[in-house]
Design a protein around this nucleic acid. Structure first.
Lengths: 180, 180
DNA sequence: GAATAACCGGAGCGAACGCTCCGTTTCGGC
DNA sequence: GCCGAAACGGAGCGTTCGCTCCGGTTATTC
């Protein structure tokens, strides 16, 4: 197995990935492979030669995104900063939040990226908890649910407001009087 | 136009609606009409005779759900109670939260139901705000975003925990020290 | 610059889906 | 019970989509 692609093949691979990113981000995962091919200026066969299945193509994009999130988690200094940037990333890619719980896209490398992100975000979370900014019973998975929920329900303009609501909900709550 | 259906036709119409409710709740809006027909014990033509389009069938189901929400809003005594029951309703019907922002399903009656729900929930909201339980800048649309976000991201078991987070985020916040 | 292997494009295949056509069955008034 | 209208079922149409096949075109090696 020669792991080196021919020059034109490598270039087309990049074109396909770039086009796929744009198409799926705009139209969601239901967009057709033909549309990606047209946008990349390439035949459909060229796509399927490099990515045997549409799901393989989607998985490649998902891996890119997961690694972006890892980078965000690595460079963020506060949990708040990470949550803001992670949500922004999800908001500008309609397909991303749908990919997350699609069991057709499970790949070992993606899972490894997720583990890494969990680790890094966990550290940010614990720091925020030690500073008394976040409840002790909040977990990394809770943060994931929040980001996904925002990406799937908050409006394109004004999601920051809902993120603030969500983060406020994670703060240690004063004791409440009455039933509420 | 005779508005009266023959006895068997009326019965089949109910069977179809019941089957459609179950199928779309379980498999989402992408489920096929054939599956609904089989579950109802009916031919596909019978479905399309009563609902000229798959979207018309979905719209009929959506109308049912919207009216259920209106009932919830009418009988709830507190905003918290409504939010809990409305979220529970969304959680047990996978298709519902997808129908909400599907522009293929806009129908005047549905829109009227939505207006009614807005009115009723608005009353509950203002009462909670007067009691100091909810920030003054929270709107009914904010509550919609929250319910949809929960339905689309929270796990089937344990969504109540996330609803509590969300509701806590709506409460008047104490002034915070520092950047958080 | 010729030979060869890698790569390309697009027509086309099979399956799935929404929807229709039409011969048959069933209901309901007389 | 008879008859016309209403309703029924399921084969089939047209379209879409993921994916493949294959004749032609490039890049790379010597």
């Amino acid at each position: 197995m020669s792991t080196t692609l021919r020059a034109d093949a490598e270039r087309n691979r990049s074109l396909v990935l770039e086009a796929a990113r744009a198409v799926f981000a705009e139209h969601g995962l239901d967009a057709g492979v033909a549309e990606v091919a047209e946008r990349a200026g390439v035949g459909v066969a060229t796509i399927f030669r490099r990515f045997p299945t549409k799901n393989d193509l989607l998985a490649a994009l998902l891996l890119e995104r997961v690694e972006e999130v890892v980078q965000l988690a690595r460079s963020a200094e506060t949990l708040q900063e990470f949550m803001t940037e992670a949500t922004a990333l999800h908001m500008q890619d309609r397909g991303y939040s749908d990919s997350v719980d699609c069991e057709m896209l499970v790949r070992p490398e993606i899972e490894r990226g997720r583990e890494e992100a969990r680790r890094l975000v966990g550290a940010l979370l614990r720091r925020a908890q030690r500073a008394g900014e976040v409840r002790d019973d909040v977990t990394v998975d809770d943060l994931t649910v929040i980001v996904i929920g925002l990406a799937r329900a908050a409006p394109q303009e004004g999601w920051q407001r809902y993120l603030e609501f969500a983060l406020d909900g994670l703060r240690p709550q004063p004791p409440r009087a009455g039933s509420w």
